[in-house]
Design a binder for these strands. Sequence first.
DNA 1: ATCGGTCCGTGACGCTTGTCACAGCGCTCC
DNA 2: GGAGCGCTGTGACAAGCGTCACGGACCGAT
Lengths: 232, 232
Amino acid sequence: MSSLVDVLREVPIFAELDERVIALLAARCVPRAVGEGFVLFRAGDPCAGLYVVLEGRVRVFRSSVDGREQTVAVEGPGRPVAELPLFDGGPYPAHAVTTMPSRLAFLPRAEFEHAFRSDPDVAAAVVHALGHRLRHLVQLLETVAFRDVAARLAMLLADYSEQTGRSNADGVHFELDRTQEELAAEIGTARESVSRALKQLTTNGLIRSRKGRRLIVAPAEQLRSWARRGGE
Amino acid sequence: MSSLVDVLREVPIFAELDERVIALLAARCVPRAVGEGFVLFRAGDPCAGLYVVLEGRVRVFRSSVDGREQTVAVEGPGRPVAELPLFDGGPYPAHAVTTMPSRLAFLPRAEFEHAFRSDPDVAAAVVHALGHRLRHLVQLLETVAFRDVAARLAMLLADYSEQTGRSNADGVHFELDRTQEELAAEIGTARESVSRALKQLTTNGLIRSRKGRRLIVAPAEQLRSWARRGGE
DNA sequence: ATCGGTCCGTGACGCTTGTCACAGCGCTCC
DNA sequence: GGAGCGCTGTGACAAGCGTCACGGACCGAT
């Protein structure tokens, strides 16, 4: 098995730290292998520490009493989960659950706090990550508030295609490793609406092809501008 | 005029710093008096520095091409505006405009960065503020995604009543110093819907009395639980 | 008092979308 | 290869809400 240090070095929020600090953090981390559906924490729980996804996937979401769920973020390998409540001392603001078997690193709060206070680089890195998250949320809020389902979906596909897609002459093609149910939760709508929106995007030429979960879509910029214009 | 130092000491994000640091920051701040409708920055502008509201009010919002607006935050005296992009180097994610004549303090980015890197207390304070904002956004996102207009309004009133209200036997009474138009932008809906939702809350007994902008409402906890249950 | 502005209430209407119901399809597991 | 199951498509319907239109209340300026 590869050493924790090697993995942490690849984690964006730790990437800029020097060896000494990474080694120190790694020594304090508790690695865990868990199955699908493992609950890292629930909204309202006091914050115990920081998780980093090494392998697998974690969904962060809020749920309402009547069972609907709004996904706030989906984190994959190398991404931190719930860095927020480490700082203001408050509870976790959302639930976090693995959506597939995963390996996680857990850094207890006290360890983290110590590193944060003693090394300004750690502080800067963390604030950087927080900033990114906040930026993303503002964006998400806007689309959920303003856009219809098709436009929100287009935005989401634009993100995915940039993250995991490869572009060639026909467009950007990539694997959409999510069910429509999951997509629906991410853009705050119902599964059926996603199904219809996918059809709509296809007839509008923004999705060029759809074979199973293999997609070929228009370039991200085109998707986004279409969404901003509100669909033609 | 009162010294800047005195004002900054009252600002939540600076409150825990010691005199020396505050004095140093104050010396670098540029105070400004501006009228209503002054544009601090627009979405996409590169980040020039941090603003702190000394007096008045600043609305932070995103707008869509077709003219609708979603308010992200409304900041009053003592509150920082746009601490986010200071860190990740990105542009401002939203517009910020004063909604009344205001006094602002402006701290150029370089000064801020210096303080942030050299004093861990500054770093901690700022992260604290960021965390708070993120928490608030997650909450806002959930309500916009799930709740109907009446519920969202109830949540908003719960916040306001806690911030500025005084409670007595009839309920919590306070002054709602916003137009329905402004309320609508904060919960992502239309003015008319706010008007109808206010009526609905009144017939349901959550708003006990409404004379002009003077409101008497149910305790915040009751408002929130009603909203969470989705209106009875 | 009169005008002009902003703000608020309310009716009518149509579109989007959530919900329910059901049918086809591709799996895996016997 | 059938049974069961999760995922997907789609039709029908109702509710919520945005939009338009209009009228009325309030208020400051002249």
